[in-house]
Design a protein around this nucleic acid. Structure first.
Length: 982
RNA sequence: GCCCAGUUGGCGGAAUUGGUAGACGCGCUGGUCUCAAACACCAGUGAGAAAUCGUGCCGGUUCGACUCCGGCACUGGGUACCA
């Protein structure tokens, strides 16, 4: 009987569920191993074949670790708060909870069919109140903490209050008061400057279409990552998290992580540490009016060595001194410019990065070393949020300053002699190489030495001091949306206060509509008037962003049902952190930074024993869609010619024909093309349309569902019933040969491009084991690749071949091969053992290296060889079943069962490779001449280098290639290669 | 612009430390089985008539380079004036 994957897979999935095979205990004598997948957002479209790629890889690894004797934690859950469900709710009125639950049910069904070894008893959903209670609880801890720069960690805010109270820390902001004499409001305002979760007026990314603010990571190229809506800068009172306090540690700890270099680089760039110095420029005395006091412009620069090259100073348009420094004559121009800069959206700014804009204030500063007057400009290439919002411009050695100076005709000074030829009329010299010139006391120094020297001078003269800046911004934490965790804050007399632990969770209230109120408040403001703290204080109306729940979920899996703590100390100390984390690289600077931040914070408070969430991270590549297009034929007939037909009627032309006409190889003329179409079309024939009747025509490629196409050949019957406004029902398909071919293109897999392939179809047709093996066989895990099912038959055949290996003759019972299960208890032969142990070695290596594609090949080779050897030895076949189990668990379980085992294969012992079976007595040396292999010669492995050399030179073939010459040199690498140099 | 990854037959890809380039699979070609087809099985398959040539291009190191070094091109991803 042939292998019946449908029956077998269903049977074992039911077995695993019933016996809770993958349920994991929090204590065990076995060593622990934690394998985690980035959990999915359950979208309405369901899983496509790209999703399971990482899940299959992690599942193989988890199953492998179980076979290796580890206590494996391998959970799954859902990141179930998010925009799509809410957008759907706005459109349909259906509560996002319902949509989300339906979507989760569908995801679960799809996941179950693939045979993953998840411990579903630990499932988490971020939108579940039992879960978000603890997300809120962590927020409260953030609110109640500050970052102590002395101990370099987060500490309770009460410690800070004590410092203020005792006077060991001065209260900043010119309060100069005794703490206890300050009002509650004043105290609250001061503390908000320290709390790790704080409320402040910040420039935020406001997305009007989504009606919410977005984090920097959620904005791509000036538009929202989800939906692609324009984003603008806006000053708003917002909850933020002080991630910048952790910038240094987030950067430094990257080095020790076993993550891909590209992700670490992305994080390093995002954090963007730059070391430089601050520097004061005094305002020229002539500018200073009455009552100005001690006014100066402070700039931040990483190139203090270029101080003598400064030819102007630029302020950001938002800089606080702009108004003061603008002279009356320039006021109009400056006001206009600031208005212009303000109204430019982020997208516009990015779109014309090259466009240089700015305006002169009319004022000057005094150069701190030369004493000369330096003009003050305003330019929006200077960002208010970075450094001090002011720069010293050195056009000769900074390309942005160069562009600005060139545009406005400001002088440029050359103060570094480039070590290479340089045309300063062309561009600035930005490199940190070369000797200083025209720079007074810095002359003759190399750049690096000059930087050192100037900083010491600046510090000695108290003009500024060494300073580090980060590109990383604090993370905006509030969203003006409904479907998220309520922020556990209420306002008492305008003072934000957090709830007590026993008041959690603060449940998401019911609302009549999921839209902002008429007054522009977030949807939570629609909650009933009784939704108030103690019936009187208003709650915060913002909810948390999508990344809140995912920033700590790896901890909840350790102790998913704990209603006393977010995770128990015992569970956290047993599981520590994730040993292997698999997910997409798109989370490089978002999720992966936040989860590290929260982990460090919880670690600082002593709540968990680790400071990093995941030791090893693997990024699976994206599976792209392979889209198919058909060419639609549009035409205009010349005047007077009419074509009668039932409306609507359409023509599609096979791509091979269109390409012959279009691809510029002129293998088909316009007449030939039209003739062909006219001849093949019944309608044109009936209406006696001729090629000359066409005034003009064109072909337009339109997407068709890839599921209606076999390779590139369109299934015409299928497409006619494909329900896209009945587009294809009443149509003619013009083709030359028997096949109607489509165009193809690799694009992102998306519903709108009709190139989505669901894993369900593959599982239905070929089985889960086949899907698992095929997704792995496709190529290296980390590489992106288009989905293409053309090779799936190879894997499908392999599974059948594997099955037959356990059923092959000599069977004492059945007649034909593959009829009856049969293994023999005889001792295996040497070649059989060699094949097995070679495979054990390879598979173990491959799994450890996450090279799953090559292990599938090895299995194929193994099965091919054993089939060839007609092997039916129990000793071999049992080991093979275990080897296969992580990859193709269903068939492995079935074979294991037939081999007579009552228990699941999950906890069998991974076979051990014995090298002695791999040793061969001889080696087939490749004999090469000048590095090119020409022939082979077999010698005993014990033969020495010298003996091999002697033997090779006597060979007839060697003489042939030597052509009578004496070899210059003969290299023999023992049991590797012989190379003869002529 | 900057950063990262990649470029190997018709296709997906393999080659573990510099040592047989193209494993394995798809596709294709021929054959066996069949009334026929599908399935299955067997054989062949980088190019070239051959000598030889071949891992994006140019150069280097080496007895020997897909692998190391220098330069360039292209593709994909990230980032966007961060002083």
């Amino acid at each position: 009987m042939e292998y019946n994957f449908r029956e077998v897979e269903k049977k074992w999935q039911a077995y695993w569920a019933k016996n809770k095979t993958f349920q994991t205990e929090n204590n065990s004598s076995k060593p622990k191993y934690y394998v985690l997948d980035m959990f999915p957002y359950p979208s309405g479209a369901g899983l496509h074949v790209g999703h399971p790629l990482g899940y299959i890889a992690s599942d193989i690894f988890a199953r492998y670790k179980r076979l290796k004797g580890f206590n494996v934690l391998h959970p799954m859950g859902y990141d179930s708060f998010g925009l799509p469900a809410e957008q759907y709710a706005i459109q349909t009125g259906q509560h996002p909870r319902i949509t989300t639950e339906n979507n989760i049910a569908r995801y679960r069904e799809q996941l179950d069919k693939i045979g993953f070894s998840f411990d579903w008893d630990r499932e988490v959903r971020t939108s579940d109140p039992h879960y978000y209670k603890w997300t809120q609880w962590i927020f409260i801890q953030l609110f109640n903490s500050w970052y102590n720069p002395e101990t370099n960690k987060a500490e309770p805010i009460t410690a800070l209050i004590n410092k203020f109270r005792s006077g060991s820390l001065t209260i900043e902001g010119g309060w100069g008061e005794v703490w206890d004499t300050l009002s509650e409001k004043q105290q609250s305002d001061i503390l908000l400057n320290y709390r790790l979760a704080f409320l402040s007026d910040t420039m935020v990314n406001w997305c009007p279409q989504l009606g919410t603010v977005l984090a920097n990571e959620e904005v791509k190229e000036g538009v929202s990552e989800r939906g692609g809506y324009p984003v603008e800068r806006k000053l708003m009172k917002q909850w933020s998290l002080r991630i910048t306090a952790y910038a240094d540690r987030l950067l430094a700890d990257l080095d020790a992580l076993d993550w891909t270099e590209s992700i670490k680089e992305a994080q390093r760039n995002w954090i963007g540490k730059s070391e430089g110095t601050s520097l004061k420029f005094n305002i020229a005395p002539s500018q200073i009016g009455e009552g100005w006091g001690d006014v100066f412009i402070e700039v931040f620069t990483t190139r203090p060595d270029t101080i003598f090259g400064v030819s102007f100073v630029t302020l950001a348009p938002e800089h606080e001194l702009v108004e003061k420094l603008t002279i009356p004559a320039q006021k109009k121009a400056v006001d206009e410019y600031i208005a212009f800069a303000k109204n430019r959206s982020e997208r516009e700014r990015m779109a014309d990065v090259k466009k240089i804009t700015g305006v002169f204030t009319g004022s000057y500063v005094i150069h701190p070393f030369t004493g000369k007057q330096v003009p003050i400009w305003i330019g929006d290439y200077v960002l208010a949020g970075y450094g001090t919002g002011a720069v010293m411009a050195v056009p000769g050695h900074d390309s942005r300053d160069y562009a600005f100076a060139s545009h406005f005709g400001i002088e440029k000074h050359i103060i570094i002699q480039p070590p290479v030829e340089w045309d300063f009329a062309e561009k600035s010299y930005d490199e940190k190489e070369g000797k200083l010139i025209n720079s007074d006391f810095l002359n003759g120094l190399e750049v690096k030495a000059a930087i050192k020297k100037i900083i010491s001078v600046i510090e000695a003269k108290e003009l500024g001091k060494g300073k580090t800046n980060f590109r990383l911004r604090d993370a905006v934490f509030g969203r003006q949306r409904y479907w998220g965790e309520p922020i556990p804050v209420y306002y008492e007399n305008g003072i934000p206060k957090v709830l007590n632990e026993n008041e959690l969770p603060l449940l998401l209230p019911e609302v009549d509509k999921y839209l902002p109120t008429e007054t522009g408040e977030p949807p939570l403001a629609r909650a009933s008037s009784t939704w108030k703290k103690d019936g009187k204080f208003e709650y915060e109306y913002s909810t948390m962003p999508g990344w809140a729940g995912s920033s700590w979920y790896f901890l909840r899996y350790m102790d998913a049902h704990n209603d006393k703590e977010f995770v128990s100390k015992e569970a956290a100390s047993y599981w520590q952190n994730v040993d292997l984390y698999i997910g997409g690289a798109e989370h490089a600077t978002g999720h992966l930074l936040y989860i590290r931040f929260w982990t460090k914070f919880l670690n600082d408070l002593g709540l968990i024993p680790v400071a990093e969430p995941a030791k090893k991270l693997i990024n699976q590549g994206m599976i792209q869609g392979d889209s198919r297009f058909v060419y639609k034929f549009y035409f205009v007939l010349i005047e007077g010619v009419t074509c009668f037909m039932k409306e609507p009627y359409r023509w599609y032309v096979s791509s091979d024909i269109v390409n012959k006409y279009q691809k510029g190889n002129s293998s088909m003329t316009r007449e030939q093309l039209l003739n062909l179409i006219v001849n093949k079309s019944e309608v044109f024939q009936k209406n006696k349309i001729k090629d000359r009747d066409f005034q003009e025509f064109k072909f337009q490629p339109i997407h068709v569902d890839v599921n209606c196409v076999d390779g590139i050949n369109l299934n015409i019957e299928k497409i006619k019933t494909w329900n896209l406004n009945n587009e294809f029902a009443n149509s003619e398909f013009i083709m030359e040969t028997g096949n109607f071919t489509c165009e193809s293109e690799v694009e992102k897999m998306s519903k709108s491009k009709w190139n989505v392939v669901s894993p369900d179809d593959i599982v239905e047709q070929h089985g889960a084991d086949c899907l698992r093996l095929y997704e792995m066989f496709l190529g290296p895990l980390e590489q992106s690749k288009p989905w293409n099912t053309s090779g799936i038959s190879g894997v499908s055949n392999f599974i059948r071949k594997l099955w037959r290996l356990y059923h092959q003759s000599p069977s004492p019972i059945g007649e034909g091969r593959g009829e009856v299960f049969y293994v023999s208890n005889e001792s295996p032969t040497k070649p059989e053992l060699k094949t097995l142990h070679k495979t054990i070695k390879k598979i173990a290596q491959d799994i450890e290296n996450f090279s799953f594609n090559t292990s599938v090949s090895s299995f194929m080779i193994c099965v091919n060889e054993l089939t060839e050897l007609k092997c039916s030895k129990r000793e071999i076949l049992e080991s093979l079943a275990i080897l296969m189990a992580p990859y193709a668990p269903h068939i492995a379980e079935e074979l294991w069962n037939k081999l007579g085992h009552e228990e699941t294969i999950t906890f069998a012992a991974f076979p051990i490779c014995y090298e002695e079976f791999l040793i061969e007595s001889s080696f087939n040396y490749p004999i090469s001449f000048n590095g090119k292999t020409r022939f082979f010669q077999e010698y005993d492995r014990a033969l020495s280098k010298e003996e091999v050399e002697k033997e090779v030179l006597t060979l007839e073939q060697t003489q042939k290639y030597l052509e009578g010459k004496t070899p210059k040199k003969v290299i023999v690498v023992h049991n590797k290669i012989v190379n003869i140099v002529i």
